[in-house]
Design a protein around this nucleic acid. Structure first.
Length: 403
DNA sequence: TCTGGGGTCCTAGGACCC
DNA sequence: TCTGGGGTCCTAGGACCC
């Protein structure tokens, strides 16, 4: 009898092929595509003074630059790199075009982020042939139309396909066959598994568990004690080749979100509370505008404060009625901030997040009961419309203007 | 080296209700 | 009078992903 609960439901050899398509150095590749002069130099896409590397081309990577590295370090490692600010609107356009290519092959496409997707191609064989042929067709199609390269992992489950696409990089295809799953998996470092980050990897290494195979040979209760029930079970199953994840076709652009938030790292640490509170207003406006655009309202406001030593705290408050009003979100955020009683603390980052979201249509009646709030919601909606017509520079909370 | 901004999910404790 | 357990909601923190 298998030690795996419900293993029969997810036996890997029963599963249909999944493709994981991952753009190679996506942001940097788009930049190089649009400026061929960049092709022969290291390119780093990233934020300003205190930002991190968002993307680096392979020339920059050969010099040691990696994703998420502080920009200061990247510049030191690679002083001759061309440093570019990200252009997220452009990436979204390319991403949408690539999504159309995916949809030509199968209706079951799950975009995991702007530059990667899972494709369930189990229904595509008759028309398109083997997963390998589909992968090659997609790669050439994307290369012809978008002039960027991607890599594809093919495997019997999403998590394995994800690991496989990393093996395929750059500009390649890597397949894990159903009958060689464990041979593929067990020699890998535990850090290769999706869901094992730096902390968990270090913890497992300290326990003497360096490879996926060693995790597979560890009793489940031991993993539970070390990692908690959820992570322990998840890793145990993955190590045995069992992957409960399935490809979920996202139904249009209206995927329900659990929260909307924004945060900001100051260029220099801030001591003056009035500066922090004004930033909370700007972030509240950003969040509320996105909520109204998405047609949602929320009840729980959470602020985040990160200090100069990088310690980070959160404080939250749940109010009785969902809101999408800037001034209400800001009022709650400021109350939470003041409750902290920060004296001369050096604040590096502040953030605002609203969760407990419900469709605005469902709270309409309650909002009308509070006439004042309803008035604000309508007024801000009018501001949204003006901003769309004339640009966001012309309207905004008074205390954000003329600074 | 000195660490962004957008999210998700899990855990654990306490309040409260039945 | 004292002792229960379960369910749900809220809060805070932490890990992880891209």
């Amino acid at each position: 009898m298998s030690a795996l609960p419900h293993a029969d439901l997810v036996a890997p050899e029963c599963r249909t092929p999944v493709l994981h398509v991952d753009m190679d150095a996506f942001y940097a590749s788009v930049a190089v595509r649009d400026d061929p002069a960049l092709a022969q130099v290291p390119v780093v896409v990233g934020g300003g003074g205190r930002g991190v590397v968002l993307s680096a081309n392979y020339l920059a990577r050969s010099r040691g630059v990696t994703s998420a590295m502080p920009m200061t370090r990247a510049r030191r490692l690679c002083p001759d790199a061309v440093v570019l600010a990200p252009d997220f609107d452009l990436y979204a356009q390319v991403s949408a075009a690539v999504l159309e290519n995916f949809r030509e092959v199968t209706g079951v496409v799950e975009m995991v982020s702007v530059d990667e997707a899972f494709l369930d191609v189990s229904g595509s064989a008759r028309q398109w042939g083997s997963p390998r042929r589909i992968a090659e067709w997609l790669r050439s199609r994307i290369h012809d139309e978008q002039r960027i390269t991607c890599s594809v992992g093919i495997a019997p489950s999403p998590t394995l396909a994800k690991i496989a696409s990393r093996r395929a990089k750059p500009d390649g295809v890597f397949t894990v066959d159903p009958d060689e799953i464990l041979e593929f998996l067990h020699p890998l470092d535990v850090g290769e598994l999706w869901g094992v980050g730096e902390k968990t990897r270090t913890l497992l290494h300290r326990l003497g568990l360096r490879t996926v195979g060693q995790v597979a040979r560890t009793p489940l209760p031991t993993l539970h004690r070390a990692l908690g029930a959820a992570v322990g079970t998840h890793l145990y199953e993955l190590a045995h080749g069992v992957d409960r994840r399935v490809v979920v076709a996202k139904s249009g652009p209206h995927a329900p979100e659990a929260s909307v938030g924004a945060d900001h790292t100051f260029e220099h640490d801030v001591i003056d509370a009035s500066v922090t509170e004004r930033e909370l207003l700007r972030l509240s406006a950003k969040v509320a505008t996105r909520m109204r655009a998405g047609g949602v309202a929320g009840r729980t406001v959470t602020i985040r404060v990160r200090f100069s030593d990088f310690t980070t705290i959160t404080r939250s408050r749940t109010v009785s009625e969902p809101t999408d009003v800037t001034l209400e979100i800001h009022r709650t955020a400021v109350a939470l901030l003041r409750q902290l009683g920060l004296q001369r603390a050096r604040v590096r980052l502040v953030g605002v997040r609203v969760s407990g979201l419900v469709p605005r249509s469902r709270v309409q009646t309650q909002m009308e009961l509070g006439q004042r709030e309803q008035g604000w919601s309508d007024a801000e909606r009018a501001v949204d419309a003006a901003a769309r017509r004339f640009g966001s520079a012309v309207v905004g909370p008074a205390s954000l203007l003329a600074r």
